[in-house]
Design a protein around this nucleic acid. Structure first.
Lengths: 347, 347
DNA sequence: TTGTAAGCGTTATCAT
DNA sequence: ATGATAACGCTTACAA
């Protein structure tokens, strides 16, 4: 059996409240040194460990923070999870991730809410897809503080999101400067809002510059990279000619496009330039390193965790609606003349 | 405030036990249809959600399973976490990850034990480094069922681990068949047991075949790939000559080695063959796709979760000490003649 | 300085 | 068919 404070109390002939006092160091000031010592050493020798479940039930603090996230293997999500865990644990909470697919969002969200979490971090483009989020948040009953992640048009009161517009502009300028006229946009059709923001940036830029744009739909395949490789191979087989540059919704897609082109003997960036998004570290090690948009993921996670912690401890603080900017990491895949070694961006 | 069964009871002029009965569908057989309906609809309209913390405190089941894991950004760990979460959630639990660094293993382990988890999945080479694990498990007090992950020499009663020996043998045969004589082993010095198993396989093979071996220590740098790239570049600068093939402890290291060689104008596999370990999917998309050892991660996670679930529900079952075999994924980075498209292994 | 008792939200065993 | 009550392990007024 588990060792409880009652056990210790019984063993020592004390009451369990005295034991609790000492072990929590709450009102232990007024406990005699003698009994204090007895209790501490008994606790140690008996292997006492406070029961967080009981503490959570009693007190206001459960010490748990939830993450509501898509069930995805993309590098981006594991990177985010890594940093969130780091910051949440630093702040003395434990992080409990709830993943969901488009099919069970509501079920999982309700499951999450059962754990009386102190706060929740939400990839909220997911929650708000199809207005589902509105419906969910209007579920009656208490909902803990929520901080939204990475949705620039978040409906939530607190959120941290990314602005791709400036970086997209710089990147497209750089690509056009390099001599490309027609530019393709490779993406999974029907994507989420944060991705659509990138697409509308792209469209506006192309129209403003009077350049021809091509949409490359990434479909089929088992993984994102594989989908992209196959879709690009199909495009090549169709023989309709390629755009002179391709911007990809993320680095996984860029990798598949890259591979399909290389396998077809197409030179990058000479024949076609490629750029991705997310700055997946592996992409810097390709024979032709990939230009990409870099997201301040760690910093965003830090801010999100701080915001949540603050909302938990001081509920009346003003909202946190923080936009952060992506930056361009120019590498060889878009650089026809100079070969940039790494992340230096000549503006 | 949160809606509780007491609230509902008060609202309806019933006792909270009746409400509980109905909402749990336990002894609700003997509750009149009328009140049953009233309770269910009241619960719905008031937004009642059962409090898992209270349920956990009362009953035996907390519904929580912990993962004790290193604080690492390697792809392998996020892959494992992804699959564990999937299977654990399928079985109706929630997964709560506890990451730790070598510096705070004990502290984190004790934190974990406070959550009266129903079971724990442990990367136990971590727990058992320096005999710490033995010490930890001998902490007095109740310890929940534990299943060890990926440590072939696990001290735990239940574990799932990987056997690299057959795959290592096949891979080295394949490399030697391809014409390489001297082979390097690139690794971070002072690694864990499961990595050391690979190294001793390598050593035995090389000695048995009378071939010269080179140890390449991967040190410095901020990420594993970067360490490997720098270490390899140093080796090249030293001008001592390279081995004809290099086996790398994992794919991240292989990627860094690959990049250093390519940047130096060295052809792969013509001048030097490279192989890695872990089958990180990105590595299949390099200009010269990387040969690697593929681990049955998903299957191993499935078995580990099943084993834990079984140990929880039927504690008296026999131990699960399951070894699974890695397989060779032969790709172009070790294939001087034929270019293998993907995973086909000609034995 | 220490003990008693109430209560957190449940479930479960009694009564009624 | 329903209600009263105890219990899970803990914290915390309040009493002694």
């Amino acid at each position: 059996m588990r060792v409880t404070i009652k056990e210790i109390a019984r063993e020592l002939g004390l009451s369990h409240s005295t034991v609790s006092r000492v072990l929590n160091d709450r009102q232990s000031a007024m406990v005699s040194e003698a009994t204090k010592d007895r209790i501490v050493s008994a606790a140690k020798s008996m292997g006492y460990r406070p029961n967080r479940i009981a503490q959570a039930l009693k007190g206001a603090r459960s010490g748990l923070i939830g993450v509501f996230m898509p069930e995805s293997q993309e590098y981006f999500f594991s990177e985010v999870l890594f940093h969130l865990r780091q910051f949440v644990e630093e702040a003395g909470y434990e992080l409990i991730p709830f993943s969901c697919s488009p099919l069970n969002v509501e079920e999982r969200w309700l499951k999450l809410l059962r754990w009386d979490l102190e706060g929740v971090l939400v990839f909220d483009y997911l929650l708000f897809a199809d207005g589902l989020g509105q419906a969910l948040l209007q579920h009656r009953g208490f909902v803990p503080p929520i901080v939204g992640l990475f949705n620039p048009s978040s409906q939530l009161e607190d959120f941290v999101a990314l602005d791709f517009a400036p970086a997209m502009g710089q990147l497209l300028d750089h690509i056009v400067d390099g001599g490309a006229r027609s530019i393709g946009y490779a993406a999974v059709p029907g994507s989420f809002q944060s991705a659509e923001q990138r697409y509308s940036c792209f469209q506006r830029f192309m129209i403003a510059h009077g350049l021809p744009q091509v949409r490359i739909d990434v479909v089929g395949g088992s993984t994102l990279s594989e989908s992209a490789r196959l879709s690009t191979a199909d495009l090549l087989a169709a023989g309709e000619g390629l755009p002179e540059a391709i911007f990809c919704q993320n680095d996984e897609i860029a990798l598949g496009v890259y591979k399909a082109l290389r396998d077809a003997g197409i030179e990058i960036p000479r024949d076609v330039m490629i750029a991705g998004c997310d700055n997946v570290p592996y992409m810097a090690y390709l024979d032709t390193p990939l230009t990409t948009l870099s997201l301040p993921v760690e910093e965003a996670c830090r801010i999100a965790c701080m915001a949540l912690h603050q909302r938990i401890t001081e509920p009346e603080q003003p909202h946190v609606r923080r936009m952060m900017e992506a930056t361009v990491v120019t590498r060889a895949s878009t650089s026809r003349s100079i070969r940039y070694e790494d992340s230096a961006v000549p503006v």
